[in-house]
Design a protein around this nucleic acid. Structure first.
Lengths: 243, 243
DNA sequence: AGACTTTTAAATGTCTGACAAATAAAAATT
DNA sequence: AATTTTTATTTGTCAGACATTTAAAAGTCT
């Protein structure tokens, strides 16, 4: 592991890259302790402050964790699915909000991904996940529910659907797509009639999942996508007309 | 934006969180300049070194960029799809390698996601993307190709397929899944016969995409998934038998 | 006046040395 | 033997300094 003092890049960035590469290459294994900051400083021939900045970069990506005290130090972190989820959600959320991704594009991606899960969910979902879906449908039917709460319940419903596939990689990939859409969804106001339509479709989908009919679930999701896009188009058209 | 000096969390982590929240909430917009490090140090009542550690955390996530000089400083970065791609790829790669995700699980996720793209690709792919797919198929048929090169070409083929959907959000989500599988794929040795089978399926899929038949492309992908899983099962079984 | 050069000021990048706080092991005490 | 105290190690934080980069301001020459 070496760095180039004449490079244009910051020393702290180079240190972070060097250590990250070592982790990715498997030269540093999970729970292995890195040399102490002072030792690293000597190895890289930089000050401790610079080493620390490099280590903080890695900590931000959950690649290492640090512990104080006599036997403390920086340890290679086992990247958990939870850590990866939350990182993906912030990234996806910012990506959508900063790059003016259209509602249609995001919506299309989300439902395409969900359709990918549906057949797996239909054959593997547990009773628990099914119960969650039914519970969220019930909640969505409650009068007086705010639009935010309705959206949150919608996310929970879809999350259960996705988790039903019992494939952690799929769940992880989809968490970003579904959650990142929430800010966009929150821009929509749902009339009682809209909600009723969505509820019917949610029920159709859940019934399909329950009876193991993947195709029907896919069809239900397609119908829901069309409904959602029409709804959004209406909202945006009305908003544009107001100006 | 405030921090709690009595919290258990590091001050630098709190500062990073506070600024990140401000960005996500839209209080800080793209290309806006943050206060200088000295000013932030005064605002948060911490030393400049601590502020810097916090800023490096954000830089590691491409949320800010820094510039030296008179008009320099830290600026809110527009998170590009490229940045998001590469972050997702490292995260996904580490997630798979560190959590002993089985080949089957990763494979299932990958093909489920690709099938989600296929119908969109069939209706939207450009001539260019189709040409890339054909070119990669041709390369895969060349004799003397190493297994690594074969896998790399396979990734390029699937990448073109995914990009054909012309949905940047989908491409972004899938980049991680497909690329993260490469190390796993590289463990497999392909016989000439295996390659021929894969080539045939790639051709079937490409033909389907070219003629706009999404269903056929999906079927081809399913067949390819089965083939890949059988192949991997063989390899792993043989390896286990050797011991 | 305009083009060029020099100076200056502001900002990040890096270094040094110090102290605080946490933590586990070693030493001392009961 | 159990408990308490000390000690050593390591990260977290701070303060101040200097180096480097950069753009704007000031100065100089034609």
């Amino acid at each position: 592991m070496k760095i180039d003092p004449n490079s244009t890049a910051d020393l702290s960035a180079q240190i972070a890259t060097a250590i990250r590469d070592a982790i990715v290459a498997g030269d540093l294994i999970v729970d292995e302790r890195l040399p102490s900051e002072s030792e690293l400083a000597e190895q890289f021939q930089v000050s401790r402050a610079t080493v620390r900045e490099g280590l903080k970069r890695l900590a931000a990506q959950s690649l290492i964790r640090t512990q104080r005290g006599a036997t403390g130090g920086a340890f290679v972190n086992r990247l958990s699915f939870e850590d990866a989820y939350s990182q993906q959600i912030t990234t996806s959320t910012l990506l959508l909000s900063m790059n003016a991704v259209s509602f249609d594009t995001a919506c299309e991606a989300r439902y395409a991904l969900e359709r990918a899960c549906a057949p797996l969910s239909a054959s593997r979902r547990t009773a628990d996940q099914l119960a969650t879906m039914r519970a969220e449908i019930f909640r969505q039917g409650q009068p007086g529910l705010t639009d935010e709460a309705f959206c949150a319940s919608d996310v929970a419903f879809h999350r259960a659907l996705v988790d039903g596939a019992h494939n952690p990689v799929l769940s992880y990939q989809l968490a970003g797509a579904v959650e990142a859409m929430q800010p966009l969804m929150n821009m929509i106001t749902f009339t009682a009639r809209d909600r009723a339509t969505i509820l019917t479709l949610h029920t159709t989908i859940t019934d399909a999942i329950e009876s193991g009919k993947g195709d029907a679930a896919v069809a239900g999701l397609s119908a829901l996508e069309e409904e959602t896009r029409n709804l959004a188009a209406d909202v945006f058209a009305r908003r544009a007309a107001k100006r």
